[in-house]
């Protein structure tokens, strides 16, 4: 055992300074949500909408000043097909990942950004520095679980932020749900939520939980959490990277501001 202690000590501090201080967040070179440059969009082109596998991009029947496309980032699985197909650079690659949003419509592209909704501060005051979360897999591909598990690695070290995974829903304040909600997981998911003490909150992690994603519908899958549980934070991504999950958790606790407004990151 002293051997391990020595090995650990010799490594030095391995935890990323972010988000407590400026510095590396470990997300370098990560390709995130595609960015829409509406002024480069050309008439009668529908390349991106045709190639989008989850219908996150649709052509507006009547082009408005705010662009020709309806883009719902809550449906985006970050497959980059639109950025590869777009002939004019209207859809471009980006490194944008901080897509946690309190309202579903904040994930829908708008030329004039929404006012970000103010948080329900009063009810959450006692939880700002210590939050217990319970995770339920409602039919994910295991990508989101892999990133949630990464949060407890020394690099992200979620504990230092006062956020803990708990085994029982009885001790949980926040329910993290992944997956599109399969027919077989619907009842266990609701039972888990019912077992939580009030006040209780729900976060949809990953595009499947937000809208059903690539697995939406069919004979066995649902359409994400809407209509199943009341959702307090939506975080699309396929999967969202660990920093995006940390950002969404801290945003829920009012310790970081919401960055996405009108389907894009504000300053």
């Amino acid at each position: 055992m002293p051997l391990w202690t020595l090995l650990g000590l010799r490594q030095g501090k391995q935890t990323a300074p972010w988000p407590l201080a400026e510095g590396a967040d470990g997300q370098a070179a990560f390709i995130g949500m595609p960015r829409y440059n509406s002024d480069r969009c050309t008439e009668e082109c529908r390349a991106c909408a045709d190639v989008c596998p989850t219908k996150a991009i649709t052509i507006r029947l009547q082009a408005a000043e705010s662009g020709r496309l309806d883009i719902d980032y809550g449906r985006c699985i970050v497959c980059q097909l639109c950025t590869e197909t777009c002939p004019t650079g209207a859809m471009t690659r980006s490194s944008d990942w901080a897509f946690g949003a309190r309202r579903r419509q904040d994930l829908v592209w708008q030329s004039s950004p929404f006012e970000p909704s103010s948080a329900d501060r009063a009810s959450r005051r006692g939880f700002r520095r210590s939050l217990h979360v319970r995770h339920v897999d409602a039919g994910s591909c295991n990508g989101c679980e892999s990133e949630l598990q990464a949060l407890n690695s020394p690099f992200y070290n979620l504990h230092r932020l006062g956020i803990f995974f708990t085994a029982s829903p009885r001790f949980a304040d926040l329910l993290l749900v992944t997956g599109p909600v399969t027919y077989a997981m619907l009842t266990p998911l609701r039972a888990t939520y019912e077992a939580m003490p009030e006040p209780r909150w729900v976060m949809a992690i990953g595009t499947c939980a937000v809208s059903g994603g690539i697995a939406e519908g069919g004979y066995a899958s649902g359409h994400g959490l809407d209509g199943v549980l009341p959702v307090d934070v939506y975080l699309p991504g396929c999967p969202p990277n660990p920093a995006a999950i940390i950002h969404a958790l801290l945003m829920f606790l009012d310790r970081l501001p919401q960055r996405v407004q009108g389907g894009r990151l504000g300053e």
Partner: peptide, 27 residues
């Protein structure tokens, strides 16, 4: 419990359409 019916989703797609599905069977 996690059965999503993924094999059925491939049906009717062109060959390239199966790529994003196959990448999301087991993350």
């Amino acid at each position: 419990f996690k059965h999503r019916g993924m094999e059925k989703r491939f049906e009717g797609l062109a060959a390239e359409g199966g790529i994003v599905l196959a990448e999301r069977i087991s993350g």
